[in-house]
Every structure is written in structure tokens, then in C-alpha cells.
Design a protein around this nucleic acid. Structure first.
Length: 428
RNA sequence: GGAGAGAUGGCCGAGUCGGCUGAAGGCGCUCGCCUGCUAAGCGAGUGUAGGGGGUAAACCUCUACCGAGGGUUCGAAUCCCUCUCUCUCCGCCA
């Protein structure tokens, strides 16, 4: 959520920002609502002041055994007026908030203006595409022939976009989760947390999923409960409505959670394999920082996420999302795209963003700074470190061998009983 | 699921028959003083959000907030209703 005062004072900048984001949102209604809101506020507050003064007067009269009935009658009338204005104000304020909640974040000045993903500049690459002396296969073929990925039964149990893992695949998934968490906590200094996988509407609003992206979420029937689409939601909301001490910052949390996404609007897209599932595992990195350090922390977060792929030895590239391709809440986003030889393409495996104070304002996350008598909003950041299912499929595709077996990266072997190669029937 | 208790400022904790209570008292914290150092002591200060004024700062002023929402009343932390959460006991259960 943007600061109304900021919008009011920088209206042209905000309009330009919306255009750069390919949004045609008209800000005029917001300015109107803001003006109405403030007008009503001035009016009702003045009336409340009068009532407060009169109430004291009535108390005094009563104490002195004098008659205050005419003043009481006046105040009764004024009370009705106040009630009427208050109710009107409530409506206006509600509309005003809804509008504000639907305005995306302002991109950082270092974000290139662009229309769509074709305008995203590449920042760097790491490693190289592996060379095969045979035709590399996509992971769904590898997984099925090894008997470790069961798409048919996943669909039978739940439906499309659900997969049953067997034996070595489930062990590999588990190994990846542990490896990622261990790396981030022991080497990168993150604090591990295990949050609820279900959250309420307030939390979803805090990070920006609601009200705008309701259709992308799974809701529990009859409850104010939603399945989390990412650990970003519960973890960022850990500190909602809190005032943090400056000395605590930056806070860095790492969390493993499953993620649930309805994938509405992507029918027919990525229907094969593990790429786009309704349920997948992810290790998420979340940071709370002082405003002036958030961009340094974004670089660090990105490097922390990249470290996982480097340790695994998988080629990837980092791209910077242009204004037209960025997420709603983000001010700047880097995507890490992993190389998938079986599909001859790069696919997003991590998205690292600085939200600046956009989420902090929604979720009301502040900190107190020495020498200042006002609280300030923190900056929040997060990034996948990494999407586990996609990491698993990247391993299958990058480390496959002609005989259909898959070599397990060295760093994961301690987590898998020193297994070196996944073979058909292994652990299943 | 049944029965009961509770929710007040960073923390603990008081609020009598509704009326200068944004809220006593204590702890903590900040600044200053004092003292070889530390500790102790003394003095002052110390919530959040929004609106208006003021040069965007300092500051002044108003409004709201004692779990959330609604009601009664001229006036509610205090009375009534609904909801949420926490705790205790019983039942059930991984």
C-alpha cells in the first residue's frame, strides 16, 4: 500500500508508474475520496470536540446541583449529527482503503521500464549448460521411468497438477529441504521458523495477496482461512502490528513450507511434469530491514539463494524484472532461472524482491529509531531459497545419464544415506 | 464439545456508585546531575494513529484508541450484546 500523502504529493509520478506497469488504473476517484474523507473528518472532529467540552460542563453543573437539561438536549441532537457523519465517513474510508489497497507498488529507480518478460535484462549467469552425448529427456520421463514420480496416481488421488512422489524422489525432496535450511541457517545466518500453513484474511492483506489476487488462492470453505501460496505470507506477518527495536534489524528468517496455488488463469500451461503444481514445497527467505539498507540486503538475499544452485552445481541465470513484468507488491525483483536441458529452456526457480515499505504499511510493521520520536516503517524483502520441486526436477534433468539413472549432487548425499545415483527401484 | 476465569501503555499492575484517567503505582528505557570505576542515588522525560495549523523540522492544537465490533448515555476502560484470543478443569484426540 502506498502512503496517501505520497500519492497526493507525487500524483504525476504515480500515474507514470502505473503506465510503466501496464496498468490503466485511474487515480482521480482516490483523490476525490481522500478529499471527502478529510472534509468529513474536520467536520466530525470539531463536533466531537464541542461535545467533549459540553460533557465536562454538564458534569460540573450536576456537581453544583444546577440544571443542565437544555445542554443535554443540545448534545443529544449533536450526538445524532455525529453519528450520521461518522457512518458516512466509515463508508468513504472503506472505499478509500479498498482503492489504495489495489494500487501496486512504485518500482525502484533502478528497475528498467519495459512491457513484458522480453524486456527483462539478464544480470549474470553462473556455470554452463551441461553437454550430453545423448538426447536429454524432460524430468517427467526420467521420473516415470525410474518409478519415482507418479503423475497418474497424483491425479487420481487429488486431480490435475498433483503428483505422488515415491522412494528416491521423496527422499531427494526431503534432502533438498534440509540442505537448503541448513545452508541458510548455518552459513547465511538466517533464523529457521516453521509457520502455520493456513492464514487468515488479515495476513493475506498484509503481504498483498488480498484483495486483488483472491482467485489465485485456495480458501477453506466456511472459515476465514486460506492455504498459503508462499511462506512469505505467514513469515512476513510474524511481526505485523509490532514495533521492532532498531538494534534487532535486519531480521532474517528462513522457512520451509508447502505452497498452495489455484493457478487460475494458467489452464493448459505447463501441464506436464512438476513445473506448475497446486501444491509444492519451498524454502523461503524473509528479511525485515531499515529502509536505507534494504537494497544491500536484497543483493545479499539474492546471493544466498544463488548459493544453493552453486552448491548443487547447476547452471542458472539471474534476470531483473522490468516494470511491466513485476509483481504487484514489489519495488524491485530479481528472478533466478535454472537451466533445464530436458526442455531446452530456463525456468524461474527463485524470485527475490524488495517490497520497501509497501507490505510494512499494510501489515503495520514499524521500528523505533534512536533520536527520532516517530516510528518508521521497516522494509520487507523475500525470496525463494529455493522452490524445492523445481530444484528436484532441475537435478533430474541436469544430472541424468544415458541409462536413465540420475547422479545425486555431492552436497545432498549425506542427507540421503550416501546414495550416489538414483536407479530404478532405488529406495522404492 | 461442556464448565469457568481473563484480555489495560515496552513489561508488571491499579482503576471505587459511568464524569478533567491517555490512564495511579512499579519496572524498564532516554537525557541530565552526582560519584576513582561499577553499583546505588537525585532530577526530568518516556504510547500509537489520524486531522488541522506552522517553512517539509521543531512545535502548537484537535480527534480516536484500555482484545475487536456494535449498543445504552450529554458522557463508557468502567454498564449491555456479539465475536476473537488466552488460561484452568472435564471430555475427545495426532
Amino acid at each position: 500500500m502506498l502512503d496517501v500523502k505520497f500519492v497526493r504529493d507525487n500524483i504525476e509520478l504515480v500515474r507514470r508508474m502505473l503506465a510503466n506497469r501496464q496498468s490503466d488504473l485511474d487515480l482521480e476517484p482516490l483523490l476525490q475520496l481522500d478529499e471527502t474523507r478529510r472534509r468529513l473528518l474536520i467536520d466530525v472532529e470539531e463536533k466531537k470536540h464541542r461535545r467533549n467540552v459540553a460533557s465536562e460542563e454538564i458534569a460540573r453543573l450536576k456537581k453544583d446541583k444546577k440544571d443542565g437539561s437544555s445542554l443535554v438536549a443540545q448534545m443529544k441532537e449533536l450526538g445524532l449529527e455525529i453519528k450520521a457523519i461518522d457512518s458516512r465517513l466509515g463508508e468513504v474510508e472503506h472505499e478509500f482503503m479498498e482503492f489504495l489497497l489495489n494500487i501496486p507498488n512504485v518500482p525502484h529507480e533502478s528497475v528498467p521500464v519495459g512491457k513484458d518478460e522480453k524486456d527483462n535484462p539478464q544480470i549474470r549467469t553462473w556455470g554452463q549448460k551441461p553437454v550430453f552425448d545423448f538426447e536429454p529427456r524432460p524430468h517427467w520421463e526420467i521420473g516415470e521411468s525410474l518409478g519415482i514420480l507418479d503423475f497418474e496416481r497424483g491425479a487420481k488421488i487429488a486431480g490435475a497438477r498433483f503428483t505422488l512422489y515415491w522412494g528416491a524422489a521423496s527422499a531427494l525432496e526431503r534432502a533438498l529441504i534440509c540442505f537448503m535450511l541448513d545452508t541458510h541457517t548455518r552459513r547465511h545466518g538466517y533464523t529457521e521458523v516453521l509457520p502455520p500453513f493456513i492464514v487468515n484474511s488479515a495476513s493475506m492483506r498484509g503481504t498483498g495477496q488480498l484483495p486483488k489476487f483472491k482467485d489465485d488462492l485456495f480458501k477453506l470453505d466456511g472459515w476465514d482461512y486460506w492455504l498459503i501460496p508462499t511462506a512469505e505470507v505467514p513469515v512476513t506477518n510474524i511481526h505485523s502490528a509490532e514495533i521492532l527495536e532498531e538494534a534487532m534489524l535486519p531480521l532474517s528468517y528462513a522457512a520451509y513450507t508447502p505452497c498452495f496455488r489455484s493457478e487460475a488463469g494458467s489452464h493448459g500451461k505447463d501441464t506436464r511434469g512438476l513445473i506448475r503444481q497446486h501444491q509444492f514445497n519451498k524454502v523461503e527467505l524473509v528479511k525485515f530491514t531499515r529502509p536505507e539498507q534494504s537494497y544491500d540486503q536484497l543483493e545479499l538475499l539474492l546471493a544466498n539463494a544463488e548459493a544453493i544452485l552453486r552448491e548443487l552445481g547447476i547452471h542458472y541465470r539471474v534476470i531483473l524484472l522490468c516494470t511491466g513484468d513485476m509483481g504487484f507488491s514489489s519495488a524491485k525483483t530479481y528472478d533466478i532461472e535454472v537451466w533445464l536441458p530436458g526442455q531446452n529452456t530456463y525456468r524461474e526457480i527463485s524470485s527475490c524482491s524488495n517490497f520497501e515499505d509497501f507490505q510494512a504499511r499494510r501489515a503495520n510493521i514499524r521500528f523505533r529509531q534512536k533520536g527520532r520520536n516517530r516510528t518508521q516503517l521497516v522494509h520487507t524483502l523475500n525470496g525463494s531459497g529455493l522452490a524445492v520441486g523445481r530444484t528436484l526436477l532441475a537435478i533430474l534433468e541436469n544430472f541424468q545419464r544415458e541409462d536413465g539413472t540420475v547422479v545425486i549432487p555431492e552436497v545432498l548425499r549425506p542427507y540421503m544415506g550416501n546414495m550416489k545415483v538414483i536407479q530404478r527401484g532405488a529406495m522404492s
